[in-house]
Design a protein around this nucleic acid. Structure first.
Lengths: 192, 192, 192, 192
DNA sequence: TATGAATGAGTCTTCATTCAT
DNA sequence: TATGAATGAAGACTCATTCAT
């Protein structure tokens, strides 16, 4: 039976596991999280996890994918907005909305990128792809705004987000996110 | 015999261990690094480590302290420069200089902050203190420049650095650091 | 419904499983072979195996039986030949024919005997019975040749076969089987 | 610290472990033997085993080496005898002496060869080397006896031994070994 | 102080077997 | 009968920490 078949099947346990993994890994970090933790969060017996994922790494990969899909959904929603300025500001608004979670656990993409980068397996490339997606989208917005330096601006924007997420998390201060988002908003306005 | 006495003693094993720890932890991450790794890097027998550090966490703390001292030295050197603008730009220059190391392992402070935050022990507070030091120094520069929003600017600057370090590391592209530093330089000029 | 009824039934899954088991167990060894391996080889869903065999051991037993039947067929074919000398030499010829398989996996009977002997269950007795059959048949040939030491000669012959199979397998050298068979042929001639 | 250093050290636990492994593996087979079994036999805590051997396979390798050394010692002792005929017959005598052990567990070399051959790792090559040693030694004896077909005779002799060991073990009948040894003795005499 | 060795708790992973449908 | 899924009992391996000398 192929994986895709498995995932099409009834109970959706595979999805439940991936979702639980995404959440727990975000909250505890990859290294600090045991399979038992994830299994418990998904209310699945540990042994059963291996029916769906051959290794812990595969489960981590699934969590990254789940995260990528969430991000994809978010981007799709943003794309409904008429102008790039509005889209970018809506992105900022989303970040502010998440500030409490960020203060507790950091940005899910960023913390994963930071932790997985230290590892030899291919997982780091998966997170990089997620980050790339976000970067490309931002670049597209700046380009639509007519900026020749769209890539550089995109990098600056995402870097600011990743950095402020880290500080917000380090100091457990959601206010940092709010202030920085406001600053970035003004910055976007100034680029027009 | 007190710890301080110990550290004043001849062999300097304690310092060697802390320095080795700082380096290895930066390169491999805390979770992926075993005591044996550090002991080996410091050329100290594993069993002996425990004479100097009661637990692995204490050794991590020492590594953070070592890192803090390095940072302190760097700041002291910057303070020799006459104007805050020059000081801030010299900081940027330092970041660019480190870009290869950053591409491989990320910013030492940032990666530690990201990883240790997920842990219940007090280590996260130690890294936060290091980050605070940097933030305070930057704030001081902006304040000297006569900016009322010095804190906000300091946060923005450090966040940009942390974020671009993460991206530089994620994409293993030192060029990102160079470009962003140039952008930040222009930004600093624009604040005058 | 009795087992015999089951085996008389249409689908022949039971036989397919036993045959697949015989093959896979020969190739991989009992311990290295999972039920899933056998099920896959027989193209039968894992869960379904248990309808035909209550335990893995029962399936191994069936594999031994399958092997015994193959051996029985071979012996029956040999018995068509007119003289015991011809029959014994035809046996040797069969061994030589199998030399490539033997070089890769050893003698099916011998490897099973060797591995199962270490186990407490009754499976070792089943393999012993298979070996006994072969031994008895060989003894009969030597007896027909008028040898009073027929049993001893039979033991020597089968031992030579088992041993050369082991060496052929250990050194992955089918040539060993060929040479030894020729030697045994001369030996048989010398007994006349 | 190098392995050789470790093995030169006091307690000899490494040797104890290797010896225990050799014994237990012979008695139970590799797959059926857990590290805990070996640790218990050597009266060493399980966790401690890993101080001496990084993996189970390394311990198995050590057991093979231990067995190789025993064999080497035996061969050295045989070499004290004046003629190749005497040496070969002394070898046979040794086999007969071991017949009870063989009836219970088979030939240590042969059972290892049979079991390890099914595995992808290099362990099978280690056992093959042990078998090779024995083969080479026997060949040398036949050559000294002036036989041009020394290799073939050596193969035949060792094959007979491996085969009769298997039968002795399968039928749990030490008498088989005795009878076959006598036959081989006569055979050696006939080659003069 | 120094150090090789010891310890044991914790983690991943496998797999025979069972179950619900 | 058929089958995907569930379960839990091992077993290998790691590593921080402790100990004996």
């Amino acid at each position: 039976m192929t994986d895709s078949k498995k995932s099409r099947r009834a109970s959706g346990k595979r999805e439940r596991l991936a979702a639980a993994a995404a959440e727990v890994l975000h909250a505890q970090g990859v290294a600090q999280t045991t399979l038992a933790d994830i299994a418990q969060a998904a209310e699945v017996p540990v042994g059963n996890v291996y029916y769906y994922f051959k290794t812990k790494d595969e489960l981590v990969e699934a969590a990254i994918d789940a995260h990528a899909r969430t991000l994809g959904g978010m981007i799709a929603a943003l794309d409904e907005l008429p102008t790039p300025e509005e889209r970018l500001k809506a992105l900022l608004a989303g970040w502010v909305e998440q500030r409490e979670l960020t203060a507790r656990f950091g940005c899910p993409t960023g913390t994963l990128a930071s932790e997985l980068d230290k590892r030899a397996d291919g997982l780091d490339r998966s997170v990089a792809a997620v980050m790339q997606t976000l970067l490309d989208w931002a670049e597209q917005q700046f380009r639509t705004m007519g900026r020749a330096d769209a890539r550089e601006l995109a990098v600056a924007l995402i870097a600011s987000y990743q950095g402020i997420s880290l500080l917000t998390n380090t100091f457990r201060d959601p206010g940092l996110m709010t202030t920085e988002a406001r600053r970035l908003e003004r910055w976007i306005d100034s680029l027009g």
